[in-house]
Simulated assay, not measured.
Amino acid sequence: MTVPALYRGLFDDAALFPPGDLPLPEAVPAHAVHRTAWYAEAVGPFLVGAGRLAELTAVLAGAPLRVALVLPDGAGQLAPALADAGALSVAGVELADPDVRAAVTALDGQLPAGVQAAVELPRGDGLPAALDVLAGTPYRAKFRTGGLAAGAFPTETELAGFLAGCAERALPYKCTAGLHHAVRHTDPATGFEHHGFLNVLLAAVAGPDEKLAAEALAERSGALLAAAAHDLTDDQVRQARERFTAFGTCSIVEPLEDLAALGLLTAPAPQEDR
């Protein structure tokens, strides 16, 4: 396989969302290129908000597209969004509701068979209780790892608490926002502290050990992180991806370039014309 197992299906295409905000007529053909490229195994579904479904359907004009619906406005969005999705191939639903029980109840009653779902959980003191509600359901937890303001980025301690809490409950999770690069860094333009997706993968290996997870999240050396990722056993890779299933990224190319620069991913050599 060209794409190592640690990165297969890891990058959900969030090109429509900030800070990328790619216009739909550009984002759809770009996704089609990703899905047929040598790195296609790394690419997850195309993320689309409920308010863009009519526009997306018009752009597609009957062409197939595997999508995940992003529903930030509560459980009441679920049924209308599924109806509006029509003939689209819905692979997943990402639902946010302050009442996690309401989200779970809506998904239990309305989610079509074979469609995966994630419930976005609140940050703060209510997180452990929200994790308890979601534990034992068929749904993943979703957690925000960034945004357009400094306060949208959790500290490594806060994120480690979420990762460890999920591991304690055997609850898989995905992340959204802020994971633009493989390695933890300070954005020179904004001053925001960004988590690295490679840091999160290695923190996932720590399981319920919150201290080890926080240490992995705090590491800023790409060389050290790359060496640790290279040395993971098959069982550790499996555990990491069973826990950390995916994250939304407005750029598919940037994370792949980071992995290549770290020596963790190699593009196939171009074939010569014969």
Rank of each mutant, 00 (worst) to 15 (best):
T2R: 07
T2K: 07
V3W: 02
D12E: 03
D13Q: 08
A14Q: 12
A15P: 08
P18N: 11
V28H: 11
A32W: 06
R35I: 14
T36M: 07
E41S: 11
G44D: 04
F46E: 09
V48R: 12
G49L: 09
A50N: 13
G51T: 14
A61R: 12
G62D: 04
A63K: 06
L65P: 15
R66E: 10
V67I: 10
V67E: 06
P72D: 01
D73R: 00
G76S: 04
L78P: 15
P80T: 13
A83W: 00
A85T: 06
A87P: 03
A87T: 03
L88I: 14
L88V: 14
S89N: 06
V93P: 11
P98A: 07
D108R: 07
D108Y: 05
Q110M: 13
V115F: 04
Q116L: 09
A117P: 01
V119W: 01
V119K: 00
L121P: 00
R123L: 12
R123P: 00
R123M: 10
R123I: 01
A130G: 10
A135E: 07
G136A: 05
T137V: 07
Y139I: 15
R140L: 15
K142P: 00
T145K: 04
A152F: 01
E156M: 04
T157R: 07
L163I: 13
L163H: 13
A164L: 13
C166I: 12
A167Q: 09
R169Q: 00
L171R: 08
P172H: 13
H181L: 06
V183W: 00
R184S: 09
H185I: 03
G191M: 00
E193N: 04
G196F: 01
G196S: 02
F197Y: 05
N199W: 11
L202D: 13
K211D: 15
A213C: 13
A213Y: 02
A214F: 01
A218N: 00
A218C: 03
R220L: 11
G222D: 09
L224Q: 05
D231Y: 00
L232S: 04
D234E: 12
A240Q: 12
R241Y: 03
R241A: 03
E242K: 09
F244Q: 07
F244S: 05
T245E: 00
A246C: 14
A246V: 15
T249V: 15
C250S: 15
S251Q: 09
I252T: 12
E254T: 10
E254A: 12
D258M: 03
A260D: 01
L265R: 02
P268E: 11
A269K: 05
D273W: 09
